[in-house]
Design a protein around this nucleic acid. Sequence first.
DNA 1: ATCCATATTTAGGCAATCCTAAATCGATAC
DNA 2: GTATCGATTTAGGATTGCCTAAATATGGAT
Lengths: 229, 229
Amino acid sequence: MSSTALSLSGPVEDYLKAIYDLERVGEPATTNDIAVRLSISPASVSGMVRRLADQKLITHEPYRGVRLTSDGRRAALRTLRRHRILECYLTEVLGYPWDGVHEEAERLEHAASEELIERMAAALGDPVLDPHGAPIPTRDGRVEEAFLRTLAEVAQGERFRVRRVQDEDASRLRYLAELGIRPGAAVRILDKAPFEGPITVWVDDSAGGSTRAIGVALAEQVFVEGMAE
Amino acid sequence: MSSTALSLSGPVEDYLKAIYDLERVGEPATTNDIAVRLSISPASVSGMVRRLADQKLITHEPYRGVRLTSDGRRAALRTLRRHRILECYLTEVLGYPWDGVHEEAERLEHAASEELIERMAAALGDPVLDPHGAPIPTRDGRVEEAFLRTLAEVAQGERFRVRRVQDEDASRLRYLAELGIRPGAAVRILDKAPFEGPITVWVDDSAGGSTRAIGVALAEQVFVEGMAE
DNA sequence: ATCCATATTTAGGCAATCCTAAATCGATAC
DNA sequence: GTATCGATTTAGGATTGCCTAAATATGGAT
């Protein structure tokens, strides 16, 4: 029951978010993972890892990787909540385009007070998902991260509902929007070419649907769920 | 016609804002003025002043003071626009109290993109004054700073309209709000005690007005204008 | 004309965060 | 079992911004 100081630097918040996300797949986050994720050198990550461990925000097994402590997790979820509420607000109230929100939220999340975030959340009626389908942690730091498969993993034939797309890259999002692939869309895999080949996918839309071929890398960014009915 | 890089650090933007404001009274801003304004040591200001001068944002006459260059002024006005649009938005759209806006805007102004600010401005119908009566620089960096006298300077007897109050201190704002002294209020000086003594002021309000005594320091934070009619 | 109080600057430090290059560890292939 | 490759850490540096203490300049009082 420790109370994380409310003021972590922007970089520290970014590290914690990255570690949270990398750790989500089960394995400890490695130095290299973090470096790639944040586009900084592995050596710099080593340095920061020491500082985060000193602050008891992570535990570090040298050469093994890093895990969030409960303080670190709390801080990560707080930042994630800020980020996602901001994305909702920018999209729904200020009319930001789907692909432009992430970058703005990325900067504002470090400057916005708890009060601002809660006022925005209230204005939106306490949203539960951000515009890309990511779940918004509650005020007290709870999230249920659904176990979703990616479009690259699922079998062909069956119909799926798109639940979430990764939002880090604006041009990728723009392309997905063009294809009609966004949370809520219905899709069906028509064909998967072997050897990591293109995936042919049918995307439902108001005009009756269209057929598109996408690469595996892109398909891995799209999370889907079997359709209930 | 130089194009200021769009990315100045938060501290740099704060220095430029401070210098802009100090310079507004005519004299170059001194090291000490800046240090007091930003609550940092004069020695630190000396250091930063060198860096700002290197970047051609200010000119520095050693032992004499500092002036913004046109690049510096442009940057200062850009930050001031951000700050004041944010104050308007937080107050009018998100329901922030009068005395809480400044602090939040102070942090957000360094993180908000041009796009965010312009979307907020549009949502508000391009406001011209912030909630404390300060003029909002236009997109292209114009402001007309009215020459207003303070309540400490004006003669007794005549009626005045409050036009603007300094917003840096939340508790001061809260107190002024209690007194009914806010932009738009009508006031009249009933008495000024000698030797920097209290100023007795009548403040108009819906209930017919009230009489209050305030100190010179507080009166200096309130800008008024003779009433037109 | 000189001296002093005050303002300013310089000197020397510290913390955070990043970098490159070099050393070292760990796991796997032979 | 050892050589080796890739990942990780350490060493050494740079930058920004802040601090305290000491040196120095300015301008008014004598």
